[in-house]
Amino acid sequence: MSLLDFLHEYDQSLLIALGEHLRLVGIALLIAVAAGVPTGAWIARGEHRAGPVLLAANIIQTIPSIALFGLMIPILAMVNHGIGFLPAVIALILYAQLPVIRNTRVALRAIPPATLDAARGLGMTERQIFLRVALPLAAPGIVAGIRIAATMSIGVAAVAAYIGAGGLGIFIVRGIQTTWDMMTIAGAVGIALLTLVVEIALGIVQRMLTPKGLRVRGGGR
């Protein structure tokens, strides 16, 4: 059986798995961004907070995903969600925190202090400074962090198949269990392709969010 034959025979279940994978990663990323960007902005404003927050995010990063799933089983079992979608989403959110928080902080701190001083001196409120000056200038850097988080999450979501969260990881898990290489390869290739597509799509978003003034150099002189 060739890979193409396999894809043909399993196209329905592959599509369902792809849908599950996207749903898992998409929901986790939305929540991770909603939590991580404000946290990054918060530690960018107060440098004394950066140490503890980044340390915590780093520690989470060092926990192997399979161990994190294992740790969550007894805790979430208390609400009857020891395995499945919920622990998977929580793990992905936690892993995404480091790239999102770190990149948000770096992007905001890279804005020249004189630019912010001028904004304040010209009479902008703190809110206007953030929305009209800081955020547009930091947007490309923040999206770069989301890109890293997205590609990483797609990979971690594959492992989540072990705790019944579904997704393309199912093919890898079953392929290993049944020593059917074709199934493992199909799952792995699917995940690789998905990563590539998301990476390219977010690259386009990053470029679109880069203000024109930061892209042009010395033209028209």
Partner: peptide, 9 residues
Amino acid sequence: IQSVGLFPH
């Protein structure tokens, strides 16, 4: 100011 602080965007 000295460093001008124009908004680059």
